[in-house]
């Protein structure tokens, strides 16, 4: 993938990711997150991870964010009214986040392989779906089953949680 496209999608991801945090309107936040995820999916595909990239769109943009929007609209969460901002707490939060960012910067700059480019792949059309599937059902069979049980438990939990208590 050309650097030009990489930077476009990287900027898209980061800017809309920041918009999630900055926006006061929850719907705008959710939509920014969708765009950010789409950019991220493009980055995945630039790493020849087509399956992961498309699953990202399918699960996050297609299902999770629709759920978010559904809840936002159902609860009718409007733009938050301007509350008195606790400047000290906000500054603290920003400072911690910035510290984390600087830390990550430093780690990456010290990390030797980070300056290397990606090695070339043998063919342009590798079947990553088949490879991931084979791995999933052989080496990671047990975790896969456990995740299945987890999703089942989550489903039951969600049904129980969102069930209205009968008015007595």
């Amino acid at each position: 993938m050309s650097p030009f496209l990489f930077w476009i999608f990287a900027l898209l991801t980061v800017i809309f990711g920041a918009a999630v945090v900055v926006n006061r309107n929850p719907v705008a936040s959710a939509l920014s997150l969708v765009v950010s995820f789409l950019g991220l999916s493009a980055l995945f595909m630039s790493l020849d991870a087509y399956f992961v990239g498309i699953i990202q769109v399918l699960v996050y943009a297609g299902a999770v964010m629709v759920l978010f929007l559904f809840i936002i609209m159902l609860l009718n969460l409007r733009t938050e009214e301007e509350r008195r901002i606790n400047w000290l707490a906000s500054a603290g939060g920003v400072a911690v986040a910035l510290a984390l960012l600087i830390q990550i910067f430093l780690v990456i700059s010290r990390f030797e392989p980070a300056r290397k480019t990606f090695p070339p792949l043998p063919g342009s059309s590798i079947d990553d779906v088949r490879n991931i599937g084979a791995l999933l059902f052989s080496s990671y069979n047990l975790p896969f089953q456990i995740v299945g049980v987890l999703v089942l438990v989550a489903t039951i939990g969600v049904v129980l949680l969102s069930k209205r208590e009968p008015r007595s």
Partner: peptide
């Protein structure tokens, strides 16, 4: 594009998410 570029984007994204939670 190097590995570091991707890690950088990932790091910035993580920091943004962290800031959001905070």
């Amino acid at each position: 594009v190097t590995l570091g570029d991707y890690l950088l984007v990932s790091g910035i994204l993580f920091a943004i998410g962290f800031a959001g939670v905070m």
